[in-house]
């Protein structure tokens, strides 16, 4: 495929010519400050817009339009099998507010999110601290091993862990039996099923996060450690007073990304329960699972859209809170 095909087949946003007459539309970005006027002809200014337009066109059709439409149909009872869609105002949101299953799903989602996020962050920090030790042998090997769990799907892994956490023949209960501990009906219990799901999430992501921490740690200047050690800081103090503050941005980033991912948890509970119910008593139903239930089992598209909007609002609130919190704790943002 020749690269020039793209320019001709994809509609490009038109650059606003008139307002740019004084300077070249396109010039190569220079960081030095002293910019030479580029020799690139103005006609080629359109290339920039042509290059970025595929993304925007695709986003407009498959991202933006559905989102706006989603807000629209959230105000209707919208059954795909029934052509008449009734406008009901805020009724879907009111129903959701009084829907105990929605609140239960919200609680479950939060519970799973906390159970998976906190241990995961701590373990990832610990692993990264081990991996950054210059004396470690076979670092590349260990790094690669850490990423192995991340390449599998939540579904495949939920199948395995679902079996491992099984009541009668699950390996975990068998081992507990040998250790003289009681058998736990992991999947039937509320917190125990959350622990099982959080374990799957942690297993999949802890190595990935450790690598991110490791990369950020490697980027910290050696001088900071030198001077800390000159001031008599021991290894632990160095970790708390040098490493952690320097990882502030990384931790914020991971919390925000982790929140967005954590509030969308779906594959693990769906596979563990084998349905969109989230267990016999909905004990591990999550928000996304509930959204799917409305679409696939109840054909309530308006309600499903309302749930989608609710998820977005919750994500926005928590992201803002995360951002605010890390700013407050660490002073000014760099």
């Amino acid at each position: 495929m020749s690269t020039t095909d793209v320019g001709s087949t994809l509609p490009s946003a038109k650059p606003q010519k008139g307002r740019h007459s004084s300077k070249p539309i396109v010039k190569l970005k220079s960081t030095g400050g002293k910019k030479k006027p580029s020799k690139i002809q103005r006609r080629e200014g359109r290339w920039a817009y042509t290059f970025i337009s595929p993304f925007y066109i695709m986003f407009l059709i498959f991202g933006m339009a559905p989102i706006l439409y989603s807000v629209y149909i959230a105000f209707f009872t919208w059954d795909p099998l029934d052509a008449t869609h009734q406008y009901v105002g805020l009724q879907n949101f009111r129903d959701l507010w009084h829907d105990s299953l929605f609140w239960m799903s919200l609680r479950n989602t939060f519970s799973i999110w906390i159970l998976s996020t906190l241990p995961q962050m701590l373990m990832a920090l610990g692993l990264a601290s081990i991996l950054r030790n210059p004396k470690l042998r076979g670092r590349v090997f260990w790094q690669t091993v850490l990423l192995v769990p991340n390449i599998t799907s939540a579904i495949a892994i939920a199948v395995v862990f679902g079996q491992l956490f099984g009541r009668d023949f699950g390996l975990i209960n068998i081992v507990r039996g040998y250790l003289g501990m009681s058998q736990i009906n992991w999947i039937e219990g509320t917190i125990s099923s959350h622990i099982a799901i959080a374990t799957m999430i942690t297993w999949r992501w802890v190595g990935y996060n450790a690598l991110i921490f490791l990369a950020s740690m490697n980027a910290i200047s050696r001088d900071l450690y030198e001077s800390a050690s000159l001031d008599g800081a021991n290894r632990l103090q160095q970790f708390f007073y040098v490493t952690l503050p320097q990882l502030k941005n990384t931790i914020t980033f991971m919390l925000v990304v982790g929140t967005i991912g954590g509030l969308q948890v779906f594959g693990e509970p769906a596979t563990l329960g084998g349905s969109f119910d989230g267990g016999d008593n909905h004990q591990f139903s999550t928000l996304t699972l509930y959204l799917f239930k409305q679409v696939k089992d109840n054909f309530a598209y308006g309600m499903a859209s309302a749930i989608g909007i609710a998820i977005t609002i919750i994500v926005a609130i928590i992201s803002a809170f995360n951002f605010f919190l890390t700013r407050r704790i660490s002073g000014d943002e760099s």
Binding site: P15, V26, P66, I67, I73, I311, T312, S319
Partner: peptide, 28 residues
């Protein structure tokens, strides 16, 4: 590497879309 009108805003826009949960528009 190219400079064009609205570059900064459009980059921010790209980053912003990454923050949206995929469920938001999934039904439509």
């Amino acid at each position: 590497k190219l400079e064009f009108r609205g570059r900064k805003f459009l980059v921010l826009f790209v980053v912003g879309t990454m923050m949206l949960p995929s469920q938001l528009g999934i039904v439509p």
